[in-house]
């Protein structure tokens, strides 16, 4: 009998605390599998990886990723990762951050990590909401979207239009590879994994800052069931946040 599927070793056996239908779990698995594969392919020495967890629903990511891990202050993961990478330049370093973390309180840190061309992979989980604190408006919350701090729907005149981080960071000269993905169906999941792995490979080749934005469902705080949530993501988020490669210096050079 041959083994056709195994759980990746880069995830611990700890049970995820995520809500049913939450996409954080899928994204964790893609990150872990990518690392695992790079090790198996001989591109990365086993154990030579450090992750940085954010403040947000994925705050416990250090319990899930089976490698050396840090828990950073809210928004500061790119600065923490910068310190790690400068101290251990041969180690694969990644941050995992939500949209409140990366696109609000941590904008300075992520913009400047990109600006310096830090050799990091940032996984940016955009669910258009502050999941952990119970569904407040994020900078990524869509116009008209109701949250606990925009109970009448996000008003563009009052608090601006949702911020597009992939577009923005692709304009920073120091960034190397920026792609926006989703994990709403199998095709997109496979694409997302490819993107994550490619970003990691770029880092191992000593290339600059890479960010993979992943549109992610938060059924709990969107007030939808898991199936409806994916539908809402497809009908509302993807049109405003188009999927695709925003920058790939590696491909430009080919």
């Amino acid at each position: 009998m041959s083994v056709v599927f195994e759980k990746t070793q880069l995830l611990t056996d700890k049970q995820f605390h995520y809500c049913p239908g939450c996409n954080h779990g899928i994204i964790h698995r893609l990150v872990a599998e990518s690392i695992d594969e790079l090790v198996k392919e001989g591109k990365l020495e086993a154990g030579n990886v450090i992750g940085v967890a954010p403040v947000g629903c994925s705050v416990f990511a250090y319990d899930y990723f089976n490698c050396d891990m840090y828990e950073a202050a809210h928004g500061r993961a790119p600065a923490v990762a910068t310190g790690i990478k400068r101290a251990k330049p041969d180690t694969l370093v990644f941050t995992y951050q939500g949209d409140g973390d990366l696109a609000s309180i941590g904008t300075a840190e992520v913009v400047h990590a990109a600006h310096r061309g830090e050799k990091l992979v940032t996984i940016f989980v955009n669910n258009a909401i502050y999941g952990m604190t119970g569904g407040q408006m994020a900078p990524t919350t869509l116009v008209g979207q109701k949250t606990t701090t925009s109970p009448y729907g996000r008003d563009e005149a009052w608090c601006g239009a949702p911020i597009k981080m992939s577009e923005m960071l692709s304009q920073v000269p120091g960034s190397y590879y920026i792609e926006r993905c989703a994990v709403n169906n199998n095709t997109n999941i496979i694409k997302c994994k490819k993107a994550i792995k490619k970003a990691m490979q770029y880092q191992l080749e000593g290339k600059g800052f890479c960010m993979i934005e992943v549109l992610s469902a938060c059924p709990t705080n969107w007030g939808l069931n898991p199936v409806e949530a994916l539908k809402w993501l497809e009908e509302n988020m993807i049109p405003y946040y188009p999927l695709g490669v925003y920058k790939d210096k590696g491909a430009e050079q080919k």
Binding site: I50, V52, Y70, A72, A73, R76, A79, V80, A81, T82, G83, I84, K85, R86, A87, K88, A108, E109, V111, H112, H115
Partner: peptide, 26 residues
């Protein structure tokens, strides 16, 4: 060694957190 000018003191101290966690003197 490594000298890095951070974008702010907020970032600088978090870089310290990152580097010190690897055991280096920071």
């Amino acid at each position: 060694g490594c000298f890095l000018q951070a974008e702010s003191e907020v970032a600088a101290i978090n870089m310290v957190y990152g580097a010190a966690g690897t055991g280096m003197r920071v």
